[in-house]
Design a protein around this nucleic acid. Structure first.
Lengths: 137, 137
DNA sequence: ATGGGTGCAAATAATTTGCAGGTAA
DNA sequence: TTACCTGCAAATTATTTGCACCCAT
């Protein structure tokens, strides 16, 4: 009944709960955060399940992931769009998708110039969003 | 006698050993790797000390740090140059410094357009270097 | 019925911290 | 001498895995 994740066979209550929460926001969340949110709203889901489903979503390409400077991993349903990067508020976590065709080409070219193949890259921009900046004043 | 790290008061044997190893390569190393290298060459240094000194180096701006896609933190003495990024071989860890003034400006502009302040960013390019590509053939 | 899913508890792994003893200055 | 440093052991934190049980199909 609940929706499914490509690569998985069944639809379960917990899977639905996870997807529901993820759809409620545009922003990234850590597995721990998501777990806390679910518990708070009364779900009896297990942390393990959260991790496993988030991993499944990422593997299926349904979720976007990135890492905080401190190393924690963040997940977010992705707009199934093309490759893009993020502008993340260091304070509230608000996330804005960014596209930079020029940067993509640049990384390709640079890697190529040095004889590197099978290239990929990570690019994230961190800052304080206008709202948070106003609050801290 | 051994050299010092800004922000610290003394020069110790272990500190010198760490700096020596770090100077032997252009590439990034994890704390664990560095620790293993030191032990292998007979040093009796403690893992804790390695972590503490690497952190001190990073705090002092003497070391550059970045994270592997898997989350492990890497350290390397930095050429005290200006801000730059890295092209890292996914296989052997060889690292090449990259500079991209255009990208720097682009991130600034993008963040600014969205009202973000206090901006910083991370950008790393991963790939397989020519040597490793040849070996795996 | 049955194999994919789940959850608890235990296992990993990287990194940090408490604390007693060592040592550079 | 003195307090900065070190190292061991224990504690933390994020995440993964073993395994018995459960439920969507």
């Amino acid at each position: 009944m609940a929706e499914s994740i490509p690569g998985t066979a069944r639809s379960t209550r917990q899977r639905g709960e996870i997807l529901t929460i993820l759809r409620e926001t545009e922003d990234f969340k850590t597995a721990q955060q998501l777990f806390a949110d679910l518990r708070q709203q009364g779900s009896k889901i297990g942390l393990t399940t959260v991790y496993r489903n988030l991993q499944a979503l990422a593997d299926a390409g349904e979720a976007d992931t990135m890492r905080l400077p401190n190393g924690e991993q963040l997940y977010r349903l992705c707009g199934q769009g093309r490759h893009h990067h993020h502008l993340v508020c260091r304070n509230c976590g608000r996330t804005i998708d960014i596209e930079g065709p020029a940067v993509e080409k640049w990384t390709e070219r640079v890697a190529d110039e040095h004889g590197f193949t099978d290239v990929s890259h990570t690019l994230e921009i961190f800052g304080t969003c206008a709202t948070c900046a106003a609050e801290s004043r």
